[in-house]
Design a binder for these strands. Sequence first.
DNA 1: CTTGACCTTACCATGATGGGAAGGTGCAGA
DNA 2: TCTGCACCTTCCCATCATGGTAAGGTCAAG
Lengths: 137, 137
Amino acid sequence: MQIGEAARLTGVSAKMIRHYESIGLIPSADRRDSNYRDYGHHDIHRLGFIRRARDLGFSIEQIRDLLRLWGDTQRSSADVKALAQTHISDLDEKIRLLGEMRTTLSHLAEACDGDHRPDCPIIKGLAGDEQHDHGHH
Amino acid sequence: MQIGEAARLTGVSAKMIRHYESIGLIPSADRRDSNYRDYGHHDIHRLGFIRRARDLGFSIEQIRDLLRLWGDTQRSSADVKALAQTHISDLDEKIRLLGEMRTTLSHLAEACDGDHRPDCPIIKGLAGDEQHDHGHH
DNA sequence: CTTGACCTTACCATGATGGGAAGGTGCAGA
DNA sequence: TCTGCACCTTCCCATCATGGTAAGGTCAAG
Protein backbone atom coordinates (compact mmCIF):
# COMPACT_ATOMS: atom_id res chain seq x y z
CA MET A 1 0.00 0.00 0.00
CA GLN A 2 1.01 3.62 -0.47
CA ILE A 3 2.21 5.89 2.29
CA GLY A 4 -1.13 7.70 2.57
CA GLU A 5 -3.00 4.53 3.41
CA ALA A 6 -0.29 3.49 5.84
CA ALA A 7 -0.71 6.88 7.48
CA ARG A 8 -4.47 6.47 7.68
CA LEU A 9 -4.22 2.98 9.14
CA THR A 10 -1.63 3.82 11.77
CA GLY A 11 -2.39 7.40 12.72
CA VAL A 12 1.17 8.39 11.87
CA SER A 13 1.27 11.15 9.24
CA ALA A 14 2.96 10.46 5.90
CA LYS A 15 5.32 13.26 6.80
CA MET A 16 6.38 11.52 9.97
CA ILE A 17 6.65 8.11 8.31
CA ARG A 18 9.19 9.59 5.90
CA HIS A 19 10.91 11.30 8.79
CA TYR A 20 11.13 8.10 10.82
CA GLU A 21 12.65 6.42 7.80
CA SER A 22 15.20 9.21 7.40
CA ILE A 23 16.38 8.87 11.01
CA GLY A 24 16.50 5.10 10.81
CA LEU A 25 13.63 4.41 13.19
CA ILE A 26 12.07 2.25 10.49
CA PRO A 27 13.91 0.56 7.63
CA SER A 28 13.85 2.09 4.16
CA ALA A 29 10.53 1.25 2.58
CA ASP A 30 10.32 -0.82 -0.56
CA ARG A 31 9.76 1.22 -3.70
CA ARG A 32 7.46 0.61 -6.62
CA ASP A 33 8.54 1.38 -10.19
CA SER A 34 6.97 4.78 -9.70
CA ASN A 35 9.40 5.39 -6.82
CA TYR A 36 6.40 5.43 -4.48
CA ARG A 37 7.04 3.82 -1.11
CA ASP A 38 5.27 0.50 -0.61
CA TYR A 39 4.14 -0.78 2.79
CA GLY A 40 2.98 -4.16 4.00
CA HIS A 41 1.37 -5.44 7.15
CA HIS A 42 4.75 -5.79 8.84
CA ASP A 43 5.43 -2.08 8.36
CA ILE A 44 1.94 -1.21 9.58
CA HIS A 45 2.53 -3.21 12.71
CA ARG A 46 5.79 -1.42 13.39
CA LEU A 47 4.26 2.00 12.77
CA GLY A 48 1.38 1.16 15.09
CA PHE A 49 3.89 0.24 17.78
CA ILE A 50 5.65 3.55 17.28
CA ARG A 51 2.43 5.53 17.45
CA ARG A 52 1.32 3.87 20.66
CA ALA A 53 4.73 4.49 22.26
CA ARG A 54 4.61 8.09 21.09
CA ASP A 55 1.11 8.47 22.55
CA LEU A 56 2.52 7.36 25.89
CA GLY A 57 5.06 10.16 25.67
CA PHE A 58 8.16 8.12 24.90
CA SER A 59 10.89 10.03 23.06
CA ILE A 60 12.15 8.92 19.67
CA GLU A 61 15.31 7.52 21.24
CA GLN A 62 13.29 5.61 23.82
CA ILE A 63 11.10 4.28 21.04
CA ARG A 64 14.24 3.19 19.24
CA ASP A 65 15.19 1.22 22.34
CA LEU A 66 11.69 -0.20 22.67
CA LEU A 67 11.72 -1.37 19.06
CA ARG A 68 15.05 -3.06 19.67
CA LEU A 69 13.63 -4.75 22.77
CA TRP A 70 10.53 -5.75 20.82
CA GLY A 71 12.65 -7.55 18.27
CA ASP A 72 14.96 -9.15 20.81
CA THR A 73 13.57 -12.48 21.91
CA GLN A 74 16.47 -12.92 24.33
CA ARG A 75 15.85 -9.84 26.44
CA SER A 76 14.23 -10.08 29.82
CA SER A 77 10.99 -8.33 30.69
CA ALA A 78 13.00 -6.53 33.38
CA ASP A 79 14.80 -4.60 30.63
CA VAL A 80 11.51 -3.33 29.27
CA LYS A 81 10.09 -2.59 32.68
CA ALA A 82 13.16 -0.56 33.62
CA LEU A 83 12.71 1.63 30.56
CA ALA A 84 9.03 2.04 31.33
CA GLN A 85 9.69 2.99 34.92
CA THR A 86 12.27 5.57 33.91
CA HIS A 87 9.63 7.10 31.72
CA ILE A 88 7.01 6.96 34.47
CA SER A 89 9.44 8.88 36.69
CA ASP A 90 9.93 11.44 33.93
CA LEU A 91 6.18 11.83 33.62
CA ASP A 92 5.83 12.21 37.38
CA GLU A 93 8.46 14.93 37.39
CA LYS A 94 6.76 16.82 34.56
CA ILE A 95 3.41 16.52 36.28
CA ARG A 96 4.94 17.76 39.51
CA LEU A 97 6.48 20.81 37.85
CA LEU A 98 3.27 21.72 36.04
CA GLY A 99 1.35 21.21 39.26
CA GLU A 100 3.66 23.61 41.07
CA MET A 101 3.09 26.21 38.39
CA ARG A 102 -0.62 25.67 38.60
CA THR A 103 -0.65 26.00 42.37
CA THR A 104 1.38 29.19 42.42
CA LEU A 105 -0.59 30.76 39.62
CA SER A 106 -3.97 29.81 41.02
CA HIS A 107 -3.03 31.34 44.38
CA LEU A 108 -2.23 34.59 42.61
CA ALA A 109 -5.44 34.36 40.58
CA GLU A 110 -7.54 33.74 43.69
CA ALA A 111 -6.14 36.88 45.24
CA CYS A 112 -7.10 38.88 42.16
CA ASP A 113 -10.55 40.47 42.22
CA GLY A 114 -10.84 40.32 38.45
CA ASP A 115 -12.96 43.43 38.25
CA HIS A 116 -12.66 46.74 36.41
CA ARG A 117 -10.03 48.14 38.78
CA PRO A 118 -6.36 48.02 37.81
CA ASP A 119 -4.95 46.72 41.09
CA CYS A 120 -3.81 43.15 40.44
CA PRO A 121 -1.92 40.70 42.66
CA ILE A 122 -1.01 38.58 39.64
CA ILE A 123 0.94 41.40 38.03
CA LYS A 124 2.40 42.36 41.40
CA GLY A 125 3.55 38.82 41.97
CA LEU A 126 5.22 38.69 38.57
CA ALA A 127 6.79 42.10 39.15
CA GLY A 128 8.39 40.72 42.32
CA ASP A 129 6.53 43.05 44.63
CA GLU A 130 6.56 41.79 48.16
CA GLN A 131 3.06 42.35 49.39
CA HIS A 132 3.06 41.27 53.00
CA ASP A 133 0.36 43.39 54.63
CA HIS A 134 2.50 43.76 57.74
CA GLY A 135 2.21 47.51 57.79
CA HIS A 136 5.95 47.04 58.22
CA HIS A 137 7.83 50.43 58.35
CA MET B 1 26.03 46.85 34.34
CA GLN B 2 27.07 44.34 31.69
CA ILE B 3 24.87 41.57 30.37
CA GLY B 4 26.62 38.91 32.46
CA GLU B 5 25.76 40.59 35.74
CA ALA B 6 22.19 41.22 34.55
CA ALA B 7 21.99 37.50 33.79
CA ARG B 8 23.30 36.59 37.23
CA LEU B 9 20.90 38.95 38.99
CA THR B 10 17.80 37.86 37.09
CA GLY B 11 18.40 34.20 36.38
CA VAL B 12 17.90 34.85 32.66
CA SER B 13 20.93 33.74 30.64
CA ALA B 14 22.85 36.34 28.63
CA LYS B 15 21.95 34.30 25.60
CA MET B 16 18.25 34.65 26.32
CA ILE B 17 18.52 38.36 27.19
CA ARG B 18 19.95 38.98 23.71
CA HIS B 19 17.24 36.77 22.24
CA TYR B 20 14.46 38.62 24.05
CA GLU B 21 15.89 41.85 22.70
CA SER B 22 15.98 40.47 19.16
CA ILE B 23 12.31 39.51 19.26
CA GLY B 24 11.29 42.80 20.82
CA LEU B 25 10.27 41.41 24.22
CA ILE B 26 12.59 43.95 25.82
CA PRO B 27 13.73 47.23 24.27
CA SER B 28 17.19 47.49 22.70
CA ALA B 29 19.69 47.87 25.49
CA ASP B 30 21.85 50.98 25.78
CA ARG B 31 25.38 50.49 24.51
CA ARG B 32 28.68 51.61 25.98
CA ASP B 33 31.51 52.91 23.75
CA SER B 34 32.78 49.33 23.65
CA ASN B 35 29.45 48.30 22.10
CA TYR B 36 28.75 46.28 25.24
CA ARG B 37 25.11 46.32 26.32
CA ASP B 38 24.45 48.33 29.47
CA TYR B 39 21.63 47.52 31.91
CA GLY B 40 20.06 49.48 34.75
CA HIS B 41 17.66 48.63 37.54
CA HIS B 42 14.67 49.20 35.27
CA ASP B 43 15.93 46.52 32.87
CA ILE B 44 16.63 44.17 35.76
CA HIS B 45 13.08 44.61 37.02
CA ARG B 46 11.66 43.82 33.59
CA LEU B 47 13.87 40.76 33.18
CA GLY B 48 12.86 39.54 36.63
CA PHE B 49 9.21 39.85 35.61
CA ILE B 50 9.91 37.85 32.47
CA ARG B 51 11.74 35.13 34.38
CA ARG B 52 8.95 34.72 36.91
CA ALA B 53 6.35 34.54 34.16
CA ARG B 54 8.49 32.00 32.31
CA ASP B 55 8.84 29.97 35.51
CA LEU B 56 5.05 29.82 35.67
CA GLY B 57 5.02 28.35 32.19
CA PHE B 58 3.73 31.36 30.26
CA SER B 59 4.73 31.42 26.60
CA ILE B 60 6.75 34.25 25.14
CA GLU B 61 3.63 35.68 23.49
CA GLN B 62 1.70 35.51 26.75
CA ILE B 63 4.60 37.21 28.49
CA ARG B 64 4.48 39.90 25.83
CA ASP B 65 0.81 40.44 26.73
CA LEU B 66 1.59 40.40 30.45
CA LEU B 67 4.29 43.03 30.01
CA ARG B 68 1.86 45.21 28.11
CA LEU B 69 -0.71 44.76 30.89
CA TRP B 70 1.97 45.54 33.47
CA GLY B 71 2.69 48.85 31.81
CA ASP B 72 -0.95 49.74 31.22
CA THR B 73 -2.35 51.62 34.19
CA GLN B 74 -5.77 51.75 32.55
CA ARG B 75 -6.34 48.03 32.22
CA SER B 76 -8.61 46.19 34.59
CA SER B 77 -7.44 43.35 36.80
CA ALA B 78 -10.04 41.24 34.97
CA ASP B 79 -7.85 41.42 31.84
CA VAL B 80 -4.92 39.98 33.73
CA LYS B 81 -7.01 37.38 35.50
CA ALA B 82 -8.48 36.19 32.19
CA LEU B 83 -5.01 35.61 30.80
CA ALA B 84 -3.97 33.80 33.94
CA GLN B 85 -7.02 31.56 33.89
CA THR B 86 -6.48 30.65 30.27
CA HIS B 87 -3.01 29.56 31.25
CA ILE B 88 -4.28 27.63 34.26
CA SER B 89 -6.62 25.75 31.92
CA ASP B 90 -3.70 25.02 29.59
CA LEU B 91 -1.72 23.69 32.55
CA ASP B 92 -4.66 21.54 33.65
CA GLU B 93 -4.94 20.07 30.18
CA LYS B 94 -1.25 19.26 30.02
CA ILE B 95 -1.38 17.70 33.48
CA ARG B 96 -4.39 15.67 32.45
CA LEU B 97 -2.69 14.33 29.33
CA LEU B 98 0.48 13.42 31.18
CA GLY B 99 -1.60 11.80 33.89
CA GLU B 100 -3.39 9.68 31.32
CA MET B 101 -0.07 8.54 29.91
CA ARG B 102 1.16 7.76 33.37
CA THR B 103 -1.92 5.76 34.24
CA THR B 104 -1.85 3.70 31.07
CA LEU B 105 1.84 3.05 31.30
CA SER B 106 1.79 2.15 34.97
CA HIS B 107 -1.01 -0.34 34.36
CA LEU B 108 1.16 -2.01 31.74
CA ALA B 109 4.17 -1.90 34.05
CA GLU B 110 2.23 -3.43 36.93
CA ALA B 111 1.27 -6.33 34.72
CA CYS B 112 4.92 -6.92 33.83
CA ASP B 113 6.81 -9.31 36.05
CA GLY B 114 10.10 -7.59 35.39
CA ASP B 115 12.08 -10.74 35.73
CA HIS B 116 14.55 -12.60 33.52
CA ARG B 117 11.84 -14.03 31.25
CA PRO B 118 11.09 -12.38 27.92
CA ASP B 119 7.31 -12.32 28.17
CA CYS B 120 6.31 -8.68 28.65
CA PRO B 121 2.86 -7.07 28.72
CA ILE B 122 4.40 -3.64 28.13
CA ILE B 123 5.80 -4.68 24.77
CA LYS B 124 2.61 -6.56 23.98
CA GLY B 125 0.56 -3.48 24.74
CA LEU B 126 2.71 -1.34 22.48
CA ALA B 127 2.58 -3.96 19.76
CA GLY B 128 -1.21 -3.76 19.85
CA ASP B 129 -1.69 -7.33 20.96
CA GLU B 130 -5.11 -7.90 22.40
CA GLN B 131 -4.50 -10.06 25.40
CA HIS B 132 -7.91 -10.87 26.78
CA ASP B 133 -7.47 -14.29 28.35
CA HIS B 134 -10.88 -15.34 27.05
CA GLY B 135 -9.62 -18.42 25.35
CA HIS B 136 -11.77 -16.90 22.62
CA HIS B 137 -11.55 -18.76 19.26
C1' DC C 1 -5.82 14.68 -23.06
C1' DT C 2 -7.22 16.70 -18.89
C1' DT C 3 -8.28 16.61 -14.12
C1' DG C 4 -7.49 15.39 -9.61
C1' DA C 5 -5.59 12.65 -6.13
C1' DC C 6 -1.69 10.90 -4.90
C1' DC C 7 3.32 10.63 -4.52
C1' DT C 8 8.48 12.49 -4.56
C1' DT C 9 12.37 15.57 -2.61
C1' DA C 10 13.93 19.80 -0.58
C1' DC C 11 13.68 23.59 2.19
C1' DC C 12 11.83 26.37 6.05
C1' DA C 13 9.13 27.03 10.43
C1' DT C 14 7.79 26.31 15.15
C1' DG C 15 9.49 27.49 20.89
C1' DA C 16 12.84 28.15 24.10
C1' DT C 17 17.20 27.33 24.76
C1' DG C 18 22.13 26.18 24.32
C1' DG C 19 26.74 25.52 21.91
C1' DG C 20 30.48 27.17 19.55
C1' DA C 21 33.42 29.93 16.39
C1' DA C 22 35.85 34.13 15.37
C1' DG C 23 36.96 38.27 16.94
C1' DG C 24 36.78 42.84 19.93
C1' DT C 25 37.31 45.08 24.87
C1' DG C 26 39.22 45.94 29.20
C1' DC C 27 41.76 45.24 33.22
C1' DA C 28 45.47 43.23 36.20
C1' DG C 29 49.95 41.61 36.71
C1' DA C 30 55.00 40.58 35.00
C1' DT D 1 54.51 47.34 27.10
C1' DC D 2 53.14 42.84 26.54
C1' DT D 3 50.39 38.97 28.04
C1' DG D 4 46.71 36.59 29.80
C1' DC D 5 42.17 36.19 31.14
C1' DA D 6 37.40 37.27 31.60
C1' DC D 7 34.10 39.33 29.36
C1' DC D 8 31.65 40.98 25.42
C1' DT D 9 30.05 41.04 20.21
C1' DT D 10 27.66 38.75 16.04
C1' DC D 11 26.56 34.73 13.37
C1' DC D 12 25.39 30.16 12.53
C1' DC D 13 23.85 25.64 13.96
C1' DA D 14 21.42 22.14 17.08
C1' DT D 15 17.72 20.44 19.77
C1' DC D 16 12.53 17.70 19.44
C1' DA D 17 8.55 16.32 16.96
C1' DT D 18 5.91 18.06 13.76
C1' DG D 19 3.83 20.74 9.98
C1' DG D 20 3.82 23.75 5.70
C1' DT D 21 4.85 24.70 1.06
C1' DA D 22 6.86 24.51 -3.47
C1' DA D 23 8.01 22.24 -7.69
C1' DG D 24 7.48 18.39 -9.94
C1' DG D 25 6.43 13.08 -11.11
C1' DT D 26 2.64 9.11 -11.40
C1' DC D 27 -1.58 7.17 -12.25
C1' DA D 28 -6.43 6.17 -12.88
C1' DA D 29 -10.94 7.88 -14.31
C1' DG D 30 -13.56 10.64 -17.32
